[in-house]
Design a protein around this nucleic acid. Structure first.
Lengths: 136, 136
DNA sequence: GTTGTTTGTTGTAATGATTACAATATAAAA
DNA sequence: TTTTATATTGTAATCATTACAACAAACAAC
């Protein structure tokens, strides 16, 4: 079981207090936080923390497979250190995000009791035929 | 077959040149345009057009079921007047959006030849159990 | 360890899409 | 018409994110 420092070093990232605390925050809280929430909640422990550091750190996590970002069209991103394939449910009422232990395929059927889907959208990203040809 | 003016009147929207041209643009081009593209391309025909009008108009279209907005995480939205259930494919190489005549379920299988999916994400929006209870 | 090099952190200043707002204009209702 | 409601327009905010430069901490070579 990798600890935080090993996770960083194995990916060529230098360990730092900031990175360790932010990763620990994501793993402990599992609350799909925004940059600002992370910043506000870690400020007591890390009084010199900068918002820019939170941005940089989360970008580095995403680039190195330690986190993913979630875009629910709120105008800002959320982050999740659970990188296993699973889905998310965004409540339009309370703005909370719920984990669904379902691969992005067969949603809608097996929702938790009481949850109602109003809208769902699948975003597919990749490379189109023309661009694939151009790369040859 | 409703014409543009009827479409507006049937939904309690007042017809205007701006609205008619913007709707026509979406229906003719089917290019999943951004606000700015619409603005730039219609400026020659509508020299007094304001960006704010494009924003307002597209918001009104979305509220009244004449269009949907697409968020591919580019930092701006795209719009589509095709409101039938279908999916989209965003090419990370050329930034173009392709229509897929597939309901958001079974992507990945029947992609057009030559297209490669690198990443896909299903966004589910709705109301959670707690909020549904609170509404009683 | 010490020195030099690379990488990370911080704060402030841009950027850029979107929204707020107030003035004007146009459409519908009376 | 006259009045009332809604649209359009331009400018000024807003706000998440990014760019940048100074400083600091980690790593490598000696």
């Amino acid at each position: 079981m990798e600890n935080a420092i090993q996770k960083f070093q194995n990916r060529g990232m230098r360990p730092s207090i900031q990175r360790a605390k932010i990763l620990q925050y994501l793993l402990d809280k599992r609350n799909h936080p925004t940059v600002d929430l992370i910043y506000q909640e870690l400020l007591p422990e890390l009084p010199t923390l900068s918002r820019t550091t939170v941005y940089n750190t989360l970008d580095a996590f995403c680039e190195n497979g330690l986190a993913i970002h979630l875009d629910f069209g709120e105008g800002f991103l959320r982050y999740d250190a659970d990188t296993t394939p699973h889905s998310h449910f965004f409540c339009k009422c309370c703005q909370k995000v719920f984990d669904l232990e379902i691969p992005p395929e067969d949603i809608a059927s097996k929702l938790p009791k009481g949850f109602v889907i109003q809208e769902s959208q699948l975003y597919a990203f990749g490379v189109c035929e023309e661009c694939n040809k151009a790369k040859l």
